[in-house]
Design a protein around this nucleic acid. Structure first.
Lengths: 390, 390
DNA sequence: TCCTTTTTGATGGAAACCTCATTATGTACG
DNA sequence: CGTACATAATGAGGTTTCCATCAAAAAGGA
C-alpha cells in the first residue's frame, strides 16, 4: 500500500484513474451522476475529469438511455479498444497467440503446431508465425501492442529466464525476452504456463474471484500452480507447485496406472489416458481401478498442498480435466481422508485457451500497474515502451 | 492497489501520511528539506503539512543538529509515543502481554504462568492479569490502547474464532474477541501463534524483509506458518501449515526418536528433547543418531512445503530452535536430496518473545490500514474505537 | 567584518475542488 | 395542449492546496 500524494495534478490524475476504473469495472456506460457517486467527487469536478478523458481518448460518449424520468443523462463508456495486449502460450505441441482489448476480451488469435522434438529456433519461429497471424487477424501492428506476456513450460525465474525444463530438450536458457524484444517495443513478461492457467481460471474461469486456490495440472506432466491472497504466487525462484518431485507423492509414476491398464493396450502412450478414462466412463472395471489408483496418487501430492495452504478451491486443469466426469469423484474421495477440510474441487472450463488468456491477463495487470502508479502518466492512450536500460 | 483520489483535503491527508511515513521509516529526525525530498512536495507545502501535524500531536520538533554549514535546519521526529498497542501470547504454559509504541518498540510487559490443564476461565483470567500487569508497568489505561492482537494455539478462522485445538482440552470455541472486547474498546485481532511468530521474524527477526518464508515450529507440537508475497498467509479457514497431519511426513511420531533415546531415559517427556540435544552436543553417538532421525522426519514435511512454495528462507523456530546448533546441519542435509533449491535455513532469534512481538506487529498493521485508508481520518492521535455493530 | 551556505518566511498565482442557484430537457398528467 | 414534475447540465463565486520566486535570517569560515 503505497501512499503517494503529490500536487494538484497528481490529484486530478488519481481522480481520472478512479473514473476510468469505475467505468471499466462497471462494464456498462455510466452517467455523470453515477460516476460522481462512484468516485466521491462532486458533479462539477466529474464533468471536468470526463471531458478531459474524452479529449484524450480514454472514454467515449454513448447514446443516452431512453425512457426515464427527468432530463436524459449523458453516458460514457471505457474505450477498451483504445489498446490491446498480446498473450502467448508456448506449449509442447502448439503455440497460441491471442490479442485482447483492454477489457481482456479476445479479438484475434493465431496458432501453429510444433512437436516435443522441435528444436529451439524452429519453436521460436513458430511463435513468430502465431504472433503474426494474430496481428494480421486483428488488423494491428506490433508497435500497437501495449504489453506482451508469454507462458512457457518449465521453471521461469523473476527475470523471465527459463531455468529448468524437462519436456523440451533444448529449451532451458532460451532468451525469450530478448527474442520478443526484437519484435515488440512494449513491456514483456514471461511466466510458467501453469501459473498463467491458474490466473486465467481465477480471473475469467471456474474460480473467478476466489482468493486462495491450488491449480492442479493433471496430464502427462503433472504440475501445480497457486493463487494466494488473490494474486499469482511466484516464489523465490519460480519453482513452486513442485511437490510432485517427492518420491512419496507418487506423482512421477502415477500415469503408469493408466498406461499399463488393459484398456490402453497397444495404444501409444499419449493416447493411453484418454482410452482408459473412456473405458472407465463405460464402466470397465479394470479402467475404473486404474483411474482410482491414479487418483490415489494424485491425491497424495494434492493433500500435501491443501494441508499446507488451506485453499478455498482446487481447480482441476490440464489434459485430464477433460475427463473430470470420471476423475473428479475418485479424486475427491482419495483426498478426503488426508484433509482437515476438503476444498471444493472444480474442473477447469477454459480448456485449451487457458494459458493464452492467463497470459493476456498478466499483460493487462502489468500495464495496469504502470498506469496506476504515480510515474505512469495518464497520457493519451498509446502503447507504452519498455524503459531503455540505462 | 486501491486508487482513491478525492478532494483537496484528501490530498493534504495523503501528503500528511506520506510525511508521517517518511519520518517513521527513517527512524531519525528529518529536516524540512529532507522531508520535501522524500515526499516530492515543495518546501512551502511541507512547512504547512509539518506545522499542521505538529499542532495535532503526530510529530515533534527536536534540537537542530549542531555543526554544519549554513543556517541550522529544524528537525522533526515521529511521535511513536503518541499511541500504543497491546500484543498477547496465550501459550500452553504461559501468557505474555507486551505493550509497544507505534514504532513497535516494547515499553512494558506482563507474564503469568498456566499449565496445559488450566481450564478456560482460569486461562482467560491469567490473560487478564498479564494484561493488567503490562498496563500498570506502562502507566497506561486500557482505553489508551490503539489496538490489540492476541495469538493462541490452535486453528483461528477469519472471524477470530478458535476452531480446532489439540493442546488445550476446553479451549476450542473460546470467545476471545468477546472477552477482550469487554475490557478494551479498541480494534481486536486474533491469530494463530505460529503465524504471529513468523510475522515477528519477518518484521524484526532473522528474516527481516524476506518476501517468502516458511516458519517451522519445531517443538513438542510441530507446526508451520507462512509469509508469502511479504504478507502473512491465512488461508481460507486458517488451517495452513498442517502438512504434518499427513502420515507420510512422520511429523506425528518424530519426537519419539528423541524420547526413546537412551540419553533421555527416565526423564519426563517434556525434558527429553533438551537432554538428547545436549547429549548430541557433547558427541553422544546415540543422541546424534536420534537427532538425525528426527531431522529426517522433520525434513519430509518441510520438503513438501518447500517444493510447493519455493521460499527464500526457512526459519527454524519453536522450542527446539534453542538447539539449532545441533539440529540445523542434520536438517539441512536431510532436506537437500528432496529439494530443487535448498532455501536458506535460519534459526529463530526472537526466542520466547516471538509471538507477543508478532501480535504487536499485527495490531500495528491493523491501525496502519485504518489510518492510511481514505476513511481513517488523520485526526489528532487518539485510540481508535471498534465500529459499533449496526 | 564580510562572504558563503543553507534555511526560513512571505507573496502572488494557478489548478482543482466544492456549493448553490439557474437553466435545460425530458416524462406524466389533467 | 399546456402545466407540473423530475432529473441533468451549466455557470458563478469561493476555498483549499500547492508551486515558484525572492528577500531576509542564521550560522560558520576567511
Amino acid at each position: 500500500m503505497h501512499v503517494s500524494g503529490g500536487d494538484l495534478q497528481r490529484l486530478r490524475q488519481l481522480n481520472s484513474l478512479s473514473s476510468i476504473r469505475a467505468l471499466r469495472d462497471a462494464r456498462r456506460p455510466l452517467t455523470l451522476t453515477e460516476l460522481a457517486a462512484h468516485t466521491g467527487l462532486s458533479r462539477g469536478s466529474i464533468v471536468d475529469v470526463v471531458t478531459d478523458l474524452q479529449e484524450r481518448g480514454w472514454i467515449a460518449e454513448v447514446e443516452p438511455s431512453p425512457g426515464g424520468m427527468g432530463r436524459p443523462a449523458r453516458r460514457y463508456r471505457f474505450r477498451a479498444d483504445a489498446g490491446h495486449v498480446l498473450g502467448i502460450d508456448i506449449g509442447v505441441h502448439k503455440v497460441l497467440a491471442t490479442i485482447t482489448d483492454l477489457n481482456g476480451r479476445a479479438v484475434a488469435s493465431g496458432r501453429t503446431s510444433v512437436s516435443p522434438g522441435t528444436p529451439r529456433e524452429q519453436r521460436l519461429d513458430a511463435m513468430n508465425r502465431a504472433m503474426d497471424a494474430a496481428l494480421i487477424a486483428a488488423g494491428l501492428t506490433s508497435d500497437q501492442m501495449w504489453g506482451v506476456a508469454a507462458g512457457s513450460v518449465g521453471v521461469v525465474d523473476r527475470e523471465g529466464v527459463i531455468t529448468r525444463v524437462e519436456a523440451l530438450p533444448d529449451w532451458a536458457g532460451t532468451d525469450l525476452v530478448g527474442h520478443l524484444a526484437a519484435r515488440l517495443p512494449c513491456p514483456i513478461t514471461i511466466e510458467n504456463d501453469s501459473k498463467l492457467a491458474a490466473l486465467a481460471e481465477q480471473r475469467l474461469g471456474v474460480a473467478a474471484g476466489v482468493r486462495d486456490l491450488v491449480y492442479l495440472h493433471a496430464g502427462r506432466r503433472p504440475g501445480a500452480a497457486l493463487i494466494l491472497n488473490g494474486r499469482p504466487y511466484h516464489g523465490f525462484s519460480g519453482a513452486t507447485g513442485e511437490v510432485g518431485l517427492m518420491e512419496i507423492t507418487g506423482w512421477r509414476t502415477m500415469t503408469d496406472h493408466l498406461e499399463s491398464c488393459p484398456a490402453a493396450a497397444g495404444a501409444p502412450a499419449e493416447d493411453a489416458a484418454a482410452l482408459v478414462f473412456g473405458a472407465a466412463r463405460t464402466g470397465d472395471p479394470a479402467a475404473r481401478a486404474a483411474v482410482e489408483a491414479y487418483a490415489q496418487d494424485l491425491a497424495l501430492g494434492t493433500a500435501a498442498m491443501v494441508l499446507t495452504l488451506d485453499p478455498e478451491v482446487v481447480v482441476l486443469g490440464g489434459g485430464f480435466s477433460r475427463s473430470a466426469d470420471v476423475l473428479l469423484a475418485p479424486l475427491r474421495e482419495a483426498l478426503a481422508p488426508h484433509c482437515l477440510r476438503v476444498p471444493e474441487i472444480r474442473p477447469s472450463t477454459l480448456g485449451e485457451e487457458c494459458v493464452v488468456l492467463g497470459a493476456a491477463c498478466l499483460a493487462l495487470d502489468h500495464i495496469d500497474h504502470m498506469f496506476f502508479s504515480p510515474e505512469g502518466a495518464l497520457s493519451p492512450p498509446t502503447a507504452p515502451q519498455r524503459p531503455t536500460p540505462a
